[in-house]
Design a protein around this nucleic acid. Sequence first.
DNA 1: CCAAGATTGTTATAATATAACTCTTGTTAG
DNA 2: CTAACAAGAGTTATATTATAACAATCTTGG
Lengths: 160, 160
Amino acid sequence: MPTIGFETHDHHACVSDAMAKAEARCAASDLRLTPVRRRVLELLLAEHRALGAYDILGHLSAEGLGTQPPVAYRALDFLVKAGFAHRVEALNAYIACTHLGADHAPAFLICRNCRSVAESNTALTQGRLGDAARAAGFQIEHTVVEAQGLCPACQTGDAA
Amino acid sequence: MPTIGFETHDHHACVSDAMAKAEARCAASDLRLTPVRRRVLELLLAEHRALGAYDILGHLSAEGLGTQPPVAYRALDFLVKAGFAHRVEALNAYIACTHLGADHAPAFLICRNCRSVAESNTALTQGRLGDAARAAGFQIEHTVVEAQGLCPACQTGDAA
DNA sequence: CCAAGATTGTTATAATATAACTCTTGTTAG
DNA sequence: CTAACAAGAGTTATATTATAACAATCTTGG
């Protein structure tokens, strides 16, 4: 499961592949990929960058798909619960999942300059934190792993 | 560096020890632990729980130390920059550092029921995410590692 | 068709955070 | 000593993120 996001790749295929997987998954799991939900997923897939709920809402609003915050938040909640997108806590923002289909605990590399985000994965419960949790009797249900810094492109021109 | 937060311990000593270390560090580094900053640190130390900025502001306000949001946010910013407190991204909240003095990348175990937080530490840059970052040419500056779940006390009565 | 449940529309408001300007205080160069 | 400066604190206003609550509509199975 490689890191994706800073490498050049066939982005058109990357998007259509993800949409196809999401559709298949919805059909299989009796989930409904309604027009708003589909469009929000497309918007997130279009960029390997984190988008705020109100960025999303701006697009939806321009396209006549809804004007009020709950429209965006509901669609994002659906996508996150379905595993099609992730919430990036450090940015209060959202990003499409690039490992769709795989059962994974996501980890992010977040560029503080261009806000691009690469998704990797983690085996946190097997590492030191997992040891600490077991020792303390703490039951881990969900993990947030986010590293902030500079992506390759932003290290040269810099913008510190 | 053990996990602290879910174990019973001499809390009075834990608090006064932390205050003493903070004072020493301020004296050594030419930082000013002003009345508001000191009080906010005391409030955070009083509980091994994450407190929101407006929780803090409520206390300050009741004590005549300031009534407007910037008062709390400035004090919290100072404490975080000085390393006396950490921001918990998943909760938009703040907690006193329990490893004061040690140079560390904090990791948190967060109980979703009682909001108590234990601070452990991480060696993230040495693990899989570190490998992924190096492979991608990403330069890590700061890490957020937060595990959410149930603490020992909340697993029995549960509250799922 | 009808009922039940899921989804969407809409209004209002809550919760979190910062910009920008003023005033005070403490330090220091002259 | 004192003017000038820097750091901190007071204050007003507003930006950003998020949710509660209820009404309307659509979808599906019986």
